[in-house]
């Protein structure tokens, strides 16, 4: 266990925290950090771009770990809207619950929410993998383009509305499917993908056979007047 560097947001301005973290070279040896007293601050640990581990000891506000690259960020609390928004790579783990738009527009990396996630989880996702141990709110994966959303609990209304090629694995009940989202047959490759995601999320207690797969019916891929009631 390397020595962990500590930044206490009770006394250090957020800008100073980011100056330190953004200044780390790609081959830094200062790879372990902890952030104390986040106290619901917005935009904590955003724009990281180095292979470091950051533990945030408490709750965070909006956009925590936004646009993360390479770093592994663990939030020991709840996260506000847009946690790990537009993540490119690395991992973000929320040990509590996440508010709306978790992982929004993410283009890579892994977001794990140990609790529940709110509305629009994975909205407009573009390659990110999201694993939620609990349930997700309405309109999750709205306009999801690529990537995987795994929900070990239930999904709210209009799951996968206007979905492109993102794949949605749900273990519990789905209140309703959104426009152009349909249940798909799961093949071996899908099960392998799901199993690997559960393993990475440290949620191997769940059985892949209990999940259903949802994806795009692709009927809205080309604008057509016959589909106008779906728009």
């Amino acid at each position: 266990m390397p020595h962990s560097e500590t930044v206490d947001l009770a006394s250090v301005p957020l800008r100073e925290l980011h100056e330190q973290l953004h200044g780390l070279p790609a081959d830094t040896h200062r790879t372990s950090w902890q952030i104390l007293n986040p106290r619901g601050r917005h935009a904590v640990a955003v724009g990281l771009d180095a292979p470091i581990r950051v533990r945030v000891r408490g709750h965070v506000g909006y956009y925590a770990a936004g646009m993360n690259q390479k770093a592994i960020v663990t939030i020991e609390g709840n996260a506000g809207p847009g946690v790990a928004e537009n993540m490119m790579s690395g991992e973000v783990r929320v040990l509590g619950n996440a508010s709306m738009a978790a992982g929004a527009t993410g283009r890579g990396g892994l977001l794990v929410v140990r609790g529940d996630a709110g509305a629009r989880c994975g909205i407009s996702m573009k390659g990110i993998d999201i694993v939620v141990r609990g349930s997700v709110g309405h309109m999750s994966a709205f306009m999801g383009q690529t990537g995987n959303l795994v929900v070990c609990g239930d999904a709210g209304e209009a799951l996968g509305d206007s979905l492109y090629e993102a794949r949605l694995f749900v273990r519990g009940a789905v209140k309703s499917l959104g426009a152009d989202c349909e249940r798909k047959e799961m093949n071996e490759a899908d099960r392998a993908t799901l199993a690997a995601l559960l393993l990475r999320a440290e949620l191997s207690e769940f059985d892949v056979r209990d999940f259903a797969l949802y994806g795009s019916a692709r009927s809205l891929y080309h604008f057509h007047v016959d589909n106008v009631s779906s728009y």
């Binding site: 800008r15 953004h22 917005h42 935009a43 955003v46 724009g47 909006y62 956009y63 646009m67």
Partner: peptide, 14 residues
């Protein structure tokens, strides 16, 4: 929310 979004973008870009 826009105010917070602007803060995030500023923090990311120093």
């Amino acid at each position: 929310d826009l105010e917070i979004k602007i803060e995030e973008l500023r923090e990311i870009t120093g």
